[in-house]
Design a protein around this nucleic acid. Structure first.
Lengths: 342, 342
DNA sequence: CTGAAAGCGCTTACAG
DNA sequence: CTGAAAGCGCTTACAG
């Protein structure tokens, strides 16, 4: 019962499988089997090993396992933001989908930066991941090349591939932008502004949909677009409302590229005594919780972000397991929520 | 120039250090040094290795390195939620603090569950992390025991240790609860309700502070406490406002345990035609962005969550590097933001 | 159902 | 400044 604390050269000092095996009176590889494939081992042996594991407080060394098996059981997820509720819900979906599996999920925050995406990928690829979940379709050439060279299965989230065999789970951002703009046009608005921030690919796609609808209606006017690269915040929405109204005072509706901006714009209207939607209609995108509760409640596009994460993770798992997948592209759609603000 | 695609037994098929070394005409360990400790190697040799790395597209195998060096360069972060803006900002602080280092950050979402925390810890400990960043001070006995056995350095975030040598970075949750309640008392409110959800340890500590202040003022009444275990949402805040008013119709102020609840309560008041703060004062906790912009703007406690993450990560790094740390407990304080709603 | 041997891809002492 | 050898803690074929 004396703890043999012999310093064994470069050993980590942690309990190893070999020690568990010794205690259970079996070979290491048998102990390994008892732990990882208990069905292939006799009951009594399994029990002896389990007891040794418990008594010794054995914790498997994941690095050793990964090295020996050439399998990391790691899945990398890259999102552009962790402060954006949209992506935290995507993550929740991913975690739920993979909950029963033994995957270790590596979450990387690219902060909407190509350089950061490249850096994170370089680091995470060192872990030899089984699969990668990416946000968006468009990446820097360097990232595309790294990805290509890595041979790791990839599923892209949040939009739809226009064509090809790439795996994607999401919905059409440009369609959604078009739908919202058509809604405003149908309500009789003529001078519909578009307010965009961050200018990531999703915002740009929504703007495309907006332009298409405006052009079709013969209402397009580039002055109606207020676009800035800053991160989307309530404060920015408030500021951009002012900018929009000073550029196009006759603006009678604003399509904000997301709810944060829309909330800020509405609060600003309240401060300035501008009636929403009577004097100006304002709508957003994503349907964050506050949109249903605010006064006025906010017309917006409800997006299936939790399901995007869930389905993308499920698809990736199928690919990793080399199961046949029904379709490489999964369109989860979106829903226009018509409320008080527009 | 022909690719030797010989199947080499159990090899992973990836480029190895040995291949880089061969191409550069050096020994593997010299190639290793050229990559990891370039200063210890001659310029020409370094250049040859760098070129071989580039030409071959070599990606180091992290598992092999971890196994050989008994060092993972992994830091585990456990937060109770990823949908709560408070913790995503803590994460942002952590990432920024560790940005220059080569740490791989493993983010675990315990979902406010002890069982989940235990499970995640079990999995993450297999990666032999250099350090762990934990949310809160209170954990299940099993978790405490696992942590103890692991010998891994730990820093706890979001609150302050009452005593002892545990490393903590945060602010006093109970103090903050006390301060907010005192503020309402000083404003002349007598029937101050406390609205709590989730009932995690931070909410409970804030409630303690509330009770202390109420008792000191001789105003305590258990009927004024509405506490539910559900997750905090705007919708729940709206619902709990109704519950509060039906139990204590003479309630003249409500201290919500967080801003989500406060926002919901205020929206509900607007729907019911109850004037805030004239008929009832409402305040929150955390100072989320919307609180400054809503109408009425929301009185709340501003919490240094980004800095909590940043300082906790910096402290952990110091501990890992065995640097002497000035103090094990870092109090980052909080600020009462007096606004329109209370 | 169980095991002896080899090997995964690195890094660590230790030499020279 | 550079290198031959051993070893980190597992798992994979392959036997029996």
């Amino acid at each position: 019962m004396t703890k043999a604390q012999t310093i064994r050269g470069r050993a980590s000092g942690k309990i190893t499988l070999a020690e568990v095996a010794a205690k259970a009176g079996v070979a290491s590889m048998t102990a390994s089997r008892a732990i990882n494939q208990p069905d292939l081992v006799s009951a009594s042996l399994r029990q002896r090993v389990e007891q040794a594991v418990a008594e010794l407080g054995y914790v498997p060394n994941r690095a050793a396992r990964a090295l020996a098996s050439a399998q990391s059981n790691v899945i990398v997820v890259l999102v552009p933001s962790l402060s954006n509720a949209v992506f935290t819900e995507v993550l929740a979906g991913i975690q739920d989908a993979l909950d029963a599996d033994d995957y270790q999920i590596l979450i990387g925050n690219t902060r909407y930066s190509d350089a950061e995406e490249e850096k994170l990928l370089g680091i995470y690829l060192q872990s030899n991941p089984d699969g990668i979940l990416l946000s968006g379709m468009s990446h820097s050439p360097r990232v595309e090349q790294i990805l290509q060279a890595s041979q790791v299965p990839i599923v892209s989230m949040m939009d739809l591939a226009e064509k090809g065999s790439a795996f994607t789970v999401g919905f059409s951002q440009s369609q959604a932008g078009y739908t919202m703009t058509r809604y405003l046009l149908d309500k009789g608005h003529c001078r519909i502004g578009f307010m965009g921030a961050q200018l990531d690919e999703r915002t740009l796609k929504r703007a495309e949909g907006y332009r298409k609808a405006m052009r079709e209606a013969g209402m397009y006017d580039s002055k109606l677009e207020v676009m800035v690269g800053d991160p989307s915040t309530i404060a920015l929405g408030a500021e951009l409302l002012g900018r929009m109204l000073s550029v196009v005072p006759d603006c009678d509706a604003i399509f904000c590229c997301n709810d944060d901006l829309a909330h800020g714009a509405i609060y600003q209207c309240q401060r300035r005594g501008i009636a929403v939607p009577e004097q100006i209609a304002i709508c957003g995108f994503n349907d964050l919780p506050a949109s249903a509760w605010m006064k006025p409640s906010v017309t917006t596009i409800s997006t299936p972000r939790y399901r995007v994460g869930f389905e993308a993770a499920a698809l990736l798992r199928s690919i990793i397991r080399k199961e046949t997948v029904a379709q490489p592209q999964i369109d989860l759609g979106f829903t226009l929520m018509a409320r008080e603000s527009a």
